[in-house]
Amino acid sequence: MLFKVQRYNPETDKKPYMQEYHLDDVTSGMMLRDALLKIKESDETLSFRHSCGEGVCGSDALNINGKNGLGCLTPLSELKEPIEVRPVPGMPIIRDLVVDMTQFFHHYRAVKPYLTVHDPMPEVELAQTPEERDKLDGLYECILCGCCTTSCPSFWWNPDKFRGPAALLQAYRFLADSRDQATDERLQDLDGPYRMFRCHTIMNCVNVCPKELNPTKAIHHIKQMMIKEMV
């Protein structure tokens, strides 16, 4: 199997280039991450992030044949040769397939991804009905791999100002939480032309999410909440 992997070492290379690798012992059910590990056995200089290997940690987001995805969840059998592997787009490259995610996590932190409760804390836990809990399905599962945000043209255009789909999904995860009491502050914070309204419903985020979540829908719900607050 033929692989073309983007290489870049900022200390020696002027710009990124594609390097070819051949892998003969490809077994059925092998994922791209397994292939990259095999390639690394023959070329130890290749750098990429990975950890759990089962789509939970969100470390190995890659651009695979032009589409963002997780290396550990992408079977080689589904990929057309030559398999082109690049770092996720729109982020500064640290080395080879490793990118600097600082900007991504800056936006994540900015939406205050934790419960805010103004009332005195109850002696037991903050109770929630099963229906209220159901509203968090499709939101809490995000693993913060960054596939969505780095595939979003609005994020490429305004990475410093637009929060990006992942952070906005998390913003809605707390807006939708019956226990959270910072609805007004959260909505106020997302107003303005940049933070949320750079979203033009391109839906690349939905297309690439390895957990099959829907940030576009979450953004739509945030807008609905804003309209309800307005009237």
């Binding site: 909505l187 106020q188 032309p193 940049y194 933070r195 307005m230």
Partner: peptide, 13 residues
Amino acid sequence: MSWRAQGMRTWLL
């Protein structure tokens, strides 16, 4: 959130 919310107002209008 009020009518002065610029991003929302522009988008809605």
